[in-house]
Design a protein around this nucleic acid. Structure first.
Lengths: 133, 133
DNA sequence: CACGTTCTTGAACGATCGGTCATGAATAGC
DNA sequence: GCTATTCATGACCGATCGTTCAAGAACGTG
């Protein structure tokens, strides 16, 4: 019973994921989330409890969807570097994500190489995939 | 001429480096820096221009001191993931740092593996080096 | 000693931070 | 139609953000 929700929770989590990928956890304000998700502050806090709650939801979904080394690893990288050292729950989810990717690789120690490659690509001054022109 | 500085710039940059390593860029407030550096806000801004100025100073020093794959890469990792995507100067310094490490490795593509290993270690739920007990 | 210069000191700024709360609207069961 | 329950709405909170600024103290030079 009660008033029905006017937003789709999955869609909201996806939008939050996109924002967190682009600006990181600390770089994303609740106002940004409110704007991007198209919901109001109160609704956001009622649905997800806190900014961190929404972050964990997004990360959990991201990790659960990981299928192989070619997936987008942006959120996992940000989580590992920015949040894992100070947020245990994030660290646990990151571990799970790493395990998922590792299990799809021929050799266990290929994981480090895959992660390193992604990191190097993302950190390039002009973070463009194409290299010509 | 003029009044002499009451702090050592190198020491201040080192203290800032430690803080940025521990809490990241966004996670470190100017108040934190002021406390850790033992100087006042005005002095900090006069000496380094801005929080970002101090960050770039610290990162530049860190990158310049990189000698091999066994060095502490925390600041470089944080810079690559947290700042490089949105801060061109940071991205350039990260590139320089990566190049320095790569040049000390037998094969070029070993760099990715080294970085990935560090990332995995740092992201572990209990970020401890020892594994027993 | 007076002057120009550089650094110190700490109060103050507007902006933004994450989070809360009271009010009202929409639904289901009676 | 009444009640209970859930969600929407947006104003509001204190805290913290990065930054600026006016005043004064410490130096070298004339």
């Amino acid at each position: 019973m009660g008033r029905p929700r006017s937003f789709d929770e999955g869609t909201a989590v996806e939008a939050a994921t996109a924002l967190f990928c682009e600006r990181g956890y600390d770089g994303t304000g609740v106002d940004d989330l409110v704007r991007a998700l198209g919901m109001h502050r109160g609704s956001l806090y009622q649905a997800f409890g806190s900014k961190r709650g929404l972050w964990l939801r997004a990360l959990r979904a991201h990790v659960g969807g990981l299928a192989g080394p070619d997936d987008d690893l942006t959120l996992l990288l940000r989580a590992a570097v920015e949040r894992a050292p100070t947020d245990v729950e994030t660290a646990v989810l990151v571990s799970a994500g790493l395990a998922r990717i590792r299990s799809t690789l021929p050799a266990d120690d290929d994981l480090a190489r895959v992660l390193g490659e992604r990191l190097i690509t993302r950190a390039a001054p002009r973070s463009t995939i194409e290299e010509d022109r």
